[in-house]
Amino acid sequence: MGGDGTSTKLSGPAVLSRKPLAYAALALWVGLLAATPLLGDNYTVRIAITIAMFTAMALSWNFIGGFTGYPSFSTAAFFGIGCYVGALAQRNGIPLVVAWTLATLAVALFAAALGLIILRLKGHYFAIGSIAVVEVVRLIVSSWGSVTGGGDGLNVPLLQGGPEAVSAIVLYVMLAIMLAAFGATVLVDRGRLGFGLRCINQNEDAADMVGIDTTRYKIAAYSLSALFCGTVGAVYASWVGYIDPTDSFSILLTVKVPVMALLGGAGTVFGPIVGTGVFVLLEEFFWANFLEWNRAILGGIIVFLIFFLPGGILRLDYRRLWRDLLARRARQRSAEAAE
């Protein structure tokens, strides 16, 4: 499965030639999202913000889940801690941007320390451990009422300006985080770190034996998967103005983000971006039209994805699909002609 990703780096001018096209499409996509405050109403801007923030998180997850192949479900812990650190810092009079930076650093440190412990686990145990982290942090936050406000949640100082201005600011900040996550992905993908992570993904013992410091590499990947989620969380808290433990540490979020990356193609550079865009748009559509059944429909999408798009949208062989389609039509025509 990692084959597509690896060949982009080392060999294959064929892939390279397709790259400018992909970058152009990305630029167009970002431009479109950035233009929503001018083109659409506040609802459209909200969707654009959602896309940008989830893309940043899906790209982040890709470092550990895609490149390294560790089934991490701790995204919600990183996002939630980001929410709370940002909110608490702001409530204590720390300026906005400093509070966001602080949240980013705190989450990265948390992930590095946690990684040292749970990255020793593999497969199912790692998956369970990473989910448990979300639960533990959520429980601690809910029961530590004196600091976090417990189950009642926290009010966060609102951004200055009218609703439209605030939305636009949040959108541009989220887009900036998304692009930063993308930039980091490209750098990792081309560099030593990405190569090492792919080696770990395919055979960790062999990676160790060729001289890769697997512990350090995995911690780097895990921290990278956390960092941007922390920023996103802090910005999200400032945007919505109120956070509580259930919302910040949701199990749904922690599974949704990997699903978005898988939908596009885990371990690829552009996969998480495509997957998130498709997922959020589908989700919005179902929310709007089938409110009562939206969860079941999301479940249906997941089941569909596992069976029909196991490698993600970007790993589909479109040329073959197209050929098959043409061949089928040609057969039909000749059958018709024969009649």
């Binding site: 089934p71 479900f73 998956a127 599974v255 990997p258 699903v259 898988l262 969860r295 079941a296 999301l298 479940g299 249906g300 999408i301 997941i302 089941v303 994805l305 596992i306």
Partner: peptide, 10 residues
Amino acid sequence: LTLTFGLDMI
């Protein structure tokens, strides 16, 4: 895990 999660959502 993702598959059983999807089925669970339904």
